Simulated assay, not measured.
Amino acid sequence: MSAEIDSWKVSLPCTRAEAEAIDAAMIEIDAVLMTTETVEDDVEHWRLDAYLEAEPDAAMLAALKALVPSAAGAEPVVEALTAQDWVTLSQEGLEPIREGRFVVHTSAHPIEAPAGGRAFLIDAGRAFGTGHHATTSGCLAMLDGLAGKRFGNIIDVGTGTGLLAFAGAHLWPDAAIMATDIDPAAIDVTRENAVANGIAGVELIVADGALSDAITARAPYDLVIANILAGPLVSMAPELAAIAGPNATIVLAGLLETQRAAVVTAFEACGCTLEAVDRRGDWTILRLAAGATRYVPVTPPDPKGRDGWALDI
């Protein structure tokens, strides 16, 4: 009797540059996407693996190929997987990452926290933010560098897996922390991850943007984290600045270096000042300070037309 097919895997060759850019598009594809270096220190030899719960059709294969233009002439390798946990399979290549006092690992690669640090178990799955993308790991490093400051009211907008909110809870255990996401599935994942990591007290909100009643009722925040995408960061700059308190710290990510100027300009128009930049390959993490007086938009920000802000990456 043949084993029951439980899930599917699609593999395509890609380059390192394509691999680093793939995560920003994950929200548009119903699959867990993983990239792996196939030849050490060779930027041209990487591989994209997509794990799916259903057999990929022509549209799915075309969508995956569109993520890696260098594979235009390659035939996707499609494999039927037997009754195994497809998420676990997707995690086998995810080695633990270390950023400052933080370690992030999956169930397949458990690891102890460093002395005085914190290990987080974040499995790949329905939400973005395992810590392995440069934007998320860069945010962890940025937060780690703020450990000497005091924050009492923190919000993580676009939380995805909850990782950055959890890091905030570790660094500032007495702070009130809210984690929000446009995707209810991401909030479910964050809730599950909070239990798995023994995190309590983080308020979880499903919200499109930063102006829902639940969010504004808790404002102003002295630390605002938004790891989404450049387009939504630009359009949301007025509302993110509006929920930030005077001189609050704002950490932004999900933007390419080529998009930095547009994002900085949008926040400077709301009274913010750029304080630090962490560039990681093509990706950039920003730290800004809100103005000395609380920003009030001239007209209420219009949430319509946002180009699909992504999960926590």
Results as ranks from 00 to 15, higher is better:
S2Q: 10
A3G: 01
D6G: 12
D6R: 11
D6C: 11
S7C: 13
K9Y: 05
S11A: 11
L12A: 09
L12E: 08
C14M: 13
C14I: 10
T15A: 08
A19N: 01
A21W: 03
A24T: 11
A25G: 02
M26P: 01
T36A: 10
E37C: 10
V39I: 05
V43E: 13
E44D: 13
E44K: 03
E44T: 07
W46H: 15
L48G: 10
D49V: 01
P56H: 06
D57E: 07
A59H: 09
L61C: 00
L67V: 06
S70N: 03
A72N: 01
E75G: 00
V78L: 06
L81M: 14
T82W: 15
T88D: 13
L89W: 06
Q91Y: 05
E92D: 09
L94A: 08
E95Y: 11
E95A: 14
P96F: 09
F102Q: 03
V103E: 08
V104T: 06
S107V: 11
A108P: 02
A108H: 13
P110T: 08
I111C: 05
A113Y: 07
G116L: 12
L121R: 13
L121E: 09
G129Q: 14
G129P: 12
G131T: 01
A134L: 00
T136L: 02
C139P: 01
L140T: 01
L140F: 00
G145L: 03
G145N: 09
G145P: 02
L146R: 10
A147T: 01
G148R: 07
I155G: 10
T159W: 09
G160N: 04
L164N: 06
L164H: 01
A165N: 05
F166K: 03
G168K: 01
A169H: 01
W172Q: 12
W172V: 09
D174Q: 14
D174Y: 04
A175P: 08
I177G: 13
I182C: 00
A185D: 14
A185G: 03
A186G: 08
I187D: 11
V189H: 04
T190H: 10
E192Y: 02
A194R: 06
N197I: 05
I199N: 12
A200S: 15
V202N: 13
E203C: 05
V206R: 12
D208Q: 12
A214T: 10
A214M: 04
A217E: 12
A219R: 07
A219N: 06
L223T: 01
A226R: 03
I228C: 08
L229W: 05
L229A: 15
L233V: 04
S235L: 12
M236Q: 13
L240H: 14
N247C: 00
I250G: 15
A253Y: 03
G254Y: 02
L255M: 15
A262V: 04
V263D: 05
C270D: 13
G271W: 05
G271D: 03
L274I: 08
D278T: 01
R280L: 07
D282A: 14
W283T: 02
T284Q: 14
T284E: 15
T284L: 12
I285H: 00
A289Y: 04
T293G: 00
T293S: 13
R294Q: 10
V296F: 02
D302I: 14
D302H: 08
P303V: 12
K304Y: 00
R306Q: 14
G308F: 03
L311P: 03
